[in-house]
Write a protein that binds this DNA or RNA. Structure first.
Lengths: 183, 183
DNA sequence: TGAAAATACTACCTACCGGTCGTTATTATG
DNA sequence: CATAATAACGACCGGTAGGTAGTATTTTCA
């Protein structure tokens, strides 16, 4: 009857995504994974400790199976952007954004996990953009791309409307293609 | 010793902004306004009922003192965008976004208040953009502008970095100016 | 000024929160 | 197969959540 850590992390992510950090309860999580609440504490020392693995999993999924082919940076970039956009669209909300807004100073480990997560996302995108751009410019463009996609989740959340996300994605890809022409 | 409704709404907004819907407590709110918790309930029937006036106030501030001058739609548009960006930057978070993510189906009145708030924001921007654009296109452009600014709050929250917001603002204004040249 | 209405208070309710206790059942390893 | 480690459990802790009852105080207005 051993429940895997992954199951717990996946369900915790879903819960954080739906209800945010404050709104998610260990009781709810226990029920989702078919355990009693006390049993969760044999796996994770606290609610706060769930945040890091939740975001690590998400980050891993985002950059899985990406070959850093210098000759096809544009393909890699498009692929990652599409992957991020797809994840944000089909779950409506972004776990990371929900946690970024919801995690407070009284959960310092969670706070630093959130910061590391977004820094890693940005750096992952920037690494691809370093092929046509300077390091500094790559970071800027990556940051702007990321916040643009994240912002579009507002409309998926309140109106269940994926179109702003699609338009943002299209615009970002067009900008990247333009970089290829004039660096 | 009468506390004004406005004081309560302003403090509630601050609390929702900082902690989100689930994370904000009536006890905290009471302390902020210098009342006992029970006294809040003589003014508002529930926590949920705070959401609508909080967003109404924010909306009102956003569009205050704007003359809809057809000859200077660009000036009005820039002014509103700057106002939104400034509010998002100096409070780091956006109340509306925090509530959009945090309000759940079990708070239906709050949910519809959030939806109305963002629809009104979009419509307010779209009304200005109807001068150079078709109704349909104005709505699209307004929506995209809004989500772009909102997305930039991610970086103000996690890194206390206002630059993505400034860049988004600049880009949006540039796009609007381009509209003026080629409609 | 006096009474109605609005506001505030103390005290309390039930439900749930994150987390811990001591104990039992399961699993891995020698 | 024994044993140690891991994982699961029921019961419980103090604290706090949203909200209410009943009462006292203040404000409003005729």
């Amino acid at each position: 009857m051993k429940t895997t850590l992954d199951q717990i992390v996946v369900e915790a992510r879903e819960l954080f995504r739906e209800r945010g950090y404050a709104g998610a309860s260990m009781q709810d999580l226990a029920e989702r994974v078919g355990l009693k609440k006390a049993s969760l504490y044999t796996r994770f020392p606290s609610k706060e400790a769930l945040v890091e693995p939740v975001l690590a999993l998400t980050l891993e999924e985002t950059f899985a199976d990406l070959d850093d082919d210098a000759n096809d940076w544009l393909g890699s970039y498009e692929a990652v952007l599409k992957r991020i956009a797809a994840a944000l669209t089909d779950r409506a909300r972004c776990v990371g954004l929900h946690l970024a807004y919801g995690v407070q100073a009284d959960a310092p480990d969670a706070l630093s996990a959130v910061r590391k997560y977004f820094a890693a996302l940005r750096d992952g995108l920037a690494a691809i953009l370093k092929h046509p751009l300077s390091t500094k410019r790559a970071t800027t463009v990556a940051t702007d791309a990321l916040v643009r996609l994240e912002g579009a989740t507002l409309w998926t959340v309140i109106a269940n409307d994926p179109q702003p996300m699609q338009r943002a994605l299209k615009a970002l890809i067009a900008e990247a293609r333009a970089l290829n022409a004039s660096p």
